[in-house]
């Protein structure tokens, strides 16, 4: 069964880049534009991994992470923070909350995949069978 990965970021650009990175792998991508939406999707879908931004409108990533860790059903889901902010207090606070890993923007797809691969098993999609070639007439 394909794993589920939830990307929570207010930037559609980042959600697209994250989705593109995981496209070659057997996984279902889920998206949310802020922490509040992210919690709803997480509760409904129980993703295997959450990629979480910090600064977002409505509910930021730190608040969402705090609420995830308070929820018995969701607290074991590994979370990778994906943010442009790597300030000391930010990193320490997020680490104390129990984040699995931290990736600073800008990032390469390889870096994201490497960190994700430490949290979940990524299986390459089987190559699509080649379309039958019509015999030459």
């Amino acid at each position: 069964m394909a794993i589920k990965i939830l990307s929570v970021d207010d930037s559609r650009t980042i959600r697209l880049i994250v989705g593109k990175a995981f496209k070659p792998y057997e996984c279902t991508m889920l998206e949310a534009g802020n922490g509040e939406e992210g919690l709803v999707v997480a509760a409904r879908e129980k993703p295997d991994l959450i990629i979480l931004d910090v600064t977002m409108p409505v509910m930021d990533g730190v608040t969402m992470l705090t609420k995830l860790k308070e929820d018995a059903e969701l607290k074991t889901i590994p979370v990778i923070m994906l943010t442009a902010e790597s300030g000391r207090e930010n990193v320490l606070q997020i680490a104390r909350l129990g984040v699995r890993d931290y990736l600073v923007k800008p990032f390469k797809e390889d870096q994201l995949l490497e960190k994700a691969g430490r949290c979940v098993t990524l299986v390459k999609r089987a190559a699509a069978p080649a379309a039958p070639v019509a015999p030459a007439t």
Binding site: T13, A84, R88
Partner: peptide, 21 residues
């Protein structure tokens, strides 16, 4: 706008960390 906004975010987030530290 979304791409340029994210580019602005990445630039600014990095120096904000330095200021806060």
């Amino acid at each position: 706008s979304d791409v340029i906004g994210e580019l602005s975010n990445i630039m600014t987030g990095n120096f904000k960390s330095n200021l806060c530290d």
